[in-house]
Design a protein around this nucleic acid. Sequence first.
DNA 1: ACAATTAATACAATCGATTGTATTAATTAT
DNA 2: ATAATTAATACAATCGATTGTATTAATTGT
Lengths: 338, 338
Amino acid sequence: MKNVTIHEIAKALNINSSTVSRALNDSDRVTSKTKRKVLDKAKEMGYQRNMLASNLRRKRSNTIGVVVPRISRHFFSSTIAGIEETAYKLGFNVIICQSLEELEKEELIIENLIANRVDGILISVSMGTKKGMHLANCLNNRIPVVFFDRHLEGFPDMGKVLIDDQLGAYRATEHLIQKGCKKIGHFSGPKSLQIYRNRLEGYKMALKNYHIPYDESYVLTSKLMKKDGLEMAKKILEAHSDLDGLFCANDTAAVGAFDYFKTIDKRVPKDIAIVGFSNEPFSALTEPSLTTIDQSGEEIGKAACSLLLENIASGNTLIANETVILNPKLIERGSSQR
Amino acid sequence: MKNVTIHEIAKALNINSSTVSRALNDSDRVTSKTKRKVLDKAKEMGYQRNMLASNLRRKRSNTIGVVVPRISRHFFSSTIAGIEETAYKLGFNVIICQSLEELEKEELIIENLIANRVDGILISVSMGTKKGMHLANCLNNRIPVVFFDRHLEGFPDMGKVLIDDQLGAYRATEHLIQKGCKKIGHFSGPKSLQIYRNRLEGYKMALKNYHIPYDESYVLTSKLMKKDGLEMAKKILEAHSDLDGLFCANDTAAVGAFDYFKTIDKRVPKDIAIVGFSNEPFSALTEPSLTTIDQSGEEIGKAACSLLLENIASGNTLIANETVILNPKLIERGSSQR
DNA sequence: ACAATTAATACAATCGATTGTATTAATTAT
DNA sequence: ATAATTAATACAATCGATTGTATTAATTGT
């Protein structure tokens, strides 16, 4: 039982395969009577269009490539979900690849995506990626590229969909101020990462706008694991027993701080109000639940995919020098209600 | 600047394109001297192999399709990560699709994957999927199918990679018994789902094996959201103030129970030991951290992908009537240490 | 040195669908 | 009724790599 092709259908109906092809594609160069005959016969013979052949001929794959550092991280799986949803609506397939934060693997992935003639690439670069020759190579091959979340400087021809970390941090801090906090600490992450510098900046800006003096000793830096949060909570209270608000640059560290405060009978949010960052799934489950900043991976994914698809549809004429900045949202929960 | 093909390279070197093709594929029908020349010229001209053409000719796509209900769910994104890793090692691409629990979308996805001539399909079926004509159709097209986690009965020719829920529940309950619990409750999920029936079964079996009488009033059923856990905790304590152990069929409900016990000053694990199920990321972050059963999505993904790839490699001769049952692991944490 | 053998390369068909152009069939106009 | 026009279909090249077979070049044996 061999594969059914348009040629088989053509032979069976005693017409030409080009007519079959046009009938299947609903071209107006074919009578509706013929179309019907073809469609019926196709169904009868169990015809399955071979996209490999179609893609080769049409020089497009109807596929976009997505590269993320690690699929299982909640933020990235959310973006992927958003991407898939958007792509699916327009009939595009999505190839997913993970760089595992290795530049070398990222380069191989890009190579492979080019070889597979994807119509476009969405990428959140690995931490090790500083230069982007492999990405420039995409443009040489007329494959549009859109960064999301993590991007590289110096590629004006590539789209970017970013979240305004600074604004998110600003809102988090502002929220604490509006809840009456006067002495607000900040747990920051590695300064090597732009996002943490931005979040610190937003914190500072909020303080400034509300005329609260910035005191560097209220800012502690770590890798923001849970135990780091716990340790920093201890440290900051030793230095500043008057602390009444805390903005953590991620949710995990906030949970660590929670735990420490409980052990010393500081009440959250009564004594100390806390705001985290990222809206991790667990932040709704803590006791009290954690006020945080939502980066909506899904929205980012949708926006990035839309930008890319527009580009593809336009024949890459407007090769995206566009940058979309999404606004993070404050998710108000128990940890800041006082 | 047009696309560089093997024909361009051949022309430039004044040799035949078949030799170029063989050189690029490292065939032993080509001198190493010629290979070198071809490779150099290819690099010089910026040649990128067109997999679309290659795939068409070789009648395989080097791509596998993965269908999950929802990418952003932690368990599924973990399996996808495992699948991607395994597939990547063997040079396969991974197309990801989400059914969003809709049978209709699932059918369209399968249709599309067949049209794209994927070499195999990994699927965790949507909740609505009862019959599998769309999947049978894959076999008709000689595309092997492997189920993971959620499967359909009645497809002996399709591989299956499942986790032993019952064993997981058994181990969870056994662990509580070994920690000295005598009065162990169980929070179960909707009986319509096989997994919850299995977990209940495992709970019963453990009790039986350790000669603890089974008392139906120690088992409460709900949808296992956080608030359900909280309510059930209240209810079970009202009925049985002597409760000293609790096995929850998921981690979320366990967190709800945690919260209730805290409000009434029952100490976890001192007064009541708790074990959850799934090893959700947040289970390591609760206070105390939650003992749970790990289903290792990553392992399931790897196993399912390996099974599928073996099948593909064997030319689908052994179209997988194989079922792999993975053993869940107990993750011992604070909530059960007494 | 010449036939016999093997190595290296060239030729040409093929995978299956698409699409510009040519041809035939069907309408319309005169 | 015949030319002119339009609709419908047929023909054939093409996308780019692969691969079985044919041909030429190189090597070995005697």
